[in-house]
């Protein structure tokens, strides 16, 4: 798994590549925790290049989503492929997060 970060105005976009699984979820979670801890952060996690996300990865998203709420921030997601969307649907996660089709659509919106 690789994690890249892009700042775009008031947004921070975190792009994850590869597998979010039992081994990589911890690093992913630590990265999100560090970013969210600053408070008032508007984060977008771009999942377009992930291969799959296991329950360990969903746990990280859940914890990060709560943490963002508690620190007056937001955590949104984008770039869900059909296969990844199916995993979100199985866990009924689709309603828990603000989900956008792509990073490009988010950036095209006026702030």
């Amino acid at each position: 798994m690789e994690i890249a970060e892009q700042r775009a105005g008031h947004l921070t976009i975190i792009e994850v590549k590869g597998r979010i699984d039992s081994n990589t979820a911890k690093v992913f979670g630590e990265r999100l925790t560090t970013l969210i801890a600053a408070g008032g952060q508007r984060l977008v996690v771009d999942l377009k290049n992930i291969i799959y996300i296991s329950s360990a990865g969903f746990r990280v998203l859940l914890v990060a989503g709560r943490h963002a709420e508690e620190t007056n921030g937001t955590l949104a997601l984008c770039g869900l492929s059909t296969e990844i969307q199916r995993l979100f649907d199985l866990g009924a996660f689709t309603d828990l997060f603000e989900i956008h089709p792509s990073r490009e659509e988010i950036l095209a919106k006026p702030a």
Partner: peptide, 12 residues
């Protein structure tokens, strides 16, 4: 990918 995901869950 489905198989790897399931193995991740079970082995973990």
């Amino acid at each position: 990918n489905d198989l790897n995901l399931c193995l991740d869950e079970l082995l973990n």
